[in-house]
């Protein structure tokens, strides 16, 4: 049984490392945009970090570059100006969960009809693998060379859980980009989150655990195993909140 598969029209050669989850996410994103008929009517607000490479990975996509952590506030402004356009933020964990924690939670609080996508790779990818608030206890990074010590740096932070508690958040879910099954699930979440924005004017947030082989000092295949074996212990997958019909949770 042959299944037809076609590269999304706007994507081109990207500059992410081999095995990086960002490439996976952009493909899922653009597949969803095409399926919803919005690939010609969207504005992506890039975070700062590896997500800023998104701009160079598309041929005619519309992206606004933001400052560190400020993507949700910019997206709010863009959506106010152009309510007919699909507006979403594309951020990393350092951007959305550390420096932009306030912006992310306030976006969930205001619940403007935008969508937030967070690629959580448990470290600061672009700057060379420093410790993030999402790094796991004992995780070796360039700023926690003996492994993250929860005594002095705290336990992994889970802002997705905080966002899900906000009354007006319609959908909050965590997927992982580490296996065909999980990638297909991530696609489902992404599409649902975007659909909620344009059909019901609701706010949704989707986090994806994303492999970062370069900064984890692992091969790509080891990296996806590490997500499976380590990251999910602190960041369990699944739907945290779903207010839509039949959504439960």
């Amino acid at each position: 049984m042959a299944v037809q598969r076609k590269r999304p029209a706007l994507l081109k050669d990207n500059s992410w490392c081999a095995g990086c989850g960002h490439g996976l996410f952009t493909r899922l994103l653009h597949e969803s945009l095409e399926e919803l008929g919005y690939d010609n009517n969207y504005i992506c607000v890039d975070g700062v970090g590896c997500s800023s490479n998104y701009f160079a990975a598309t041929t005619l996509g519309s992206a606004i570059e933001s400052h560190h952590g400020k993507a949700p506030t910019i997206a709010r402004g863009v959506k106010l100006a152009r309510p007919e356009t699909m507006v979403f933020t594309y951020q990393g964990d350092g951007d959305a969960y550390v420096i932009g924690l306030s912006e992310t939670l306030n976006a969930a609080h205001f619940a403007d009809p935008i969508t937030t996508f967070v690629l959580n790779n448990n470290n600061y990818g672009m700057t060379g693998g420093q410790m993030s608030w999402t790094s796991l206890p004992g995780q070796v990074t360039t700023t926690s060379k003996a492994g993250r010590d929860p005594e002095t740096t705290g336990m992994p932070l889970d802002p997705l859980k905080m966002a899900a508690q906000e009354e007006r958040v319609a959908f909050a879910a965590r997927a992982a980009l580490n296996s065909p099954k999980n990638i297909n699930l991530a696609k489902k979440y992404i599409k649902k989150a975007l659909e909620l924005q344009v059909k019901e004017e609701k706010y949704a947030i989707v986090e994806m655990l994303s492999p970062c082989p370069t900064d984890w000092n692992l091969t790509p295949v080891q990296a996806i195993r590490w997500i499976e074996e380590e990251a999910v212990k602190y960041y369990p997958l699944g739907v945290l909140k779903d207010t839509t019909e039949g959504g439960g949770a």
Binding site: I64, S66, T73, I74, R76, G77, S102
Partner: peptide, 26 residues
């Protein structure tokens, strides 16, 4: 028209930044 009280001055300026970039006088 639209009035927004934001969570901080940083958020105010970046709301203006986003909306103006999308074409709205802010």
């Amino acid at each position: 028209r639209i009035f927004r009280q934001t969570e901080s001055e940083t958020a105010s300026i970046f709301t203006v930044y986003g909306a103006r970039q999308a074409g709205m006088r802010t």
